[in-house]
Each structure stands twice: as structure tokens, then as C-alpha cells.
Amino acid sequence: MLGSFADVPPDVSWVARECAVPADDDGRLLAAVLEEIIYRMDAADELPVDIAVAPEPGGVGVIFKMADSSTATQTGAVPKAVALHGLRLAPDAHGWSCRVTLDV
């Protein structure tokens, strides 16, 4: 997602942010994690540089590594929301694949 709109220097400093993200199914879980990132981008001027996800009952626990957005170079339109239209996260023959549309 970050690669679609910003370049962040490889050695950028970051802070860890933890949260629990609940969801009813895999597609909604993907949307909820992305929404969490978008919220932090707008509310705290932070961008995600890495993410770790661990299963939890009813959802996942997420640890984001977030960098200050002033360190980034904008390269595309900035995501503002996640559409449910066409949303998909499912296992296939090659592992897990997803399709998600971000509004900008």
C-alpha cells in the first residue's frame, strides 16, 4: 500500500504502535487493518514502514512500525478509505491472495 503513494528512506526512524483488530471474516479483517493504517496516517501524520500480524481470538493483534510522514516523498494519491466493493482475501494454490480497492 505504501509503495503506491510514497517513498520512505530505508533507514528512517520509526515507532512501534500496537493494536487489536477484530473482524468477522478474512476480507473484512484485511480492510480493518488497512483502515487502522489510514486512520493513523491522517490523525497522527504517520506512515507504515512494516507490520507484524499475529492471530488472536476474533481477529488479529498488529504491531505497526510507523515513520513520521514528513520523512516521505509523495509519489501517488494518498489513500483515504477502504472500499468493500470487490474485497477479497482467501487462500489459493499459491498461498494467500487479496484484492482491495483504496479510495483516494
Binding site: 486512520y39 491522517d42 490523525a43 494518498v78 483515504k80 483516494v104
Partner: peptide, 18 residues
């Protein structure tokens, strides 16, 4: 609350995209 937090610092800004 999240909508309020996102909007609080954006009054008078264009955004991006189109």
C-alpha cells in the same frame, strides 16, 4: 471520534488525487 480526529487538522486543505 476517529472522524473528528482525522478532520481536526484538515480544515482548509485540498488533499490529493483529483
Amino acid at each position: 471520534e476517529r472522524a473528528l480526529e482525522r478532520g481536526a487538522g484538515q480544515v482548509g486543505s485540498l488533499g490529493s488525487a483529483n
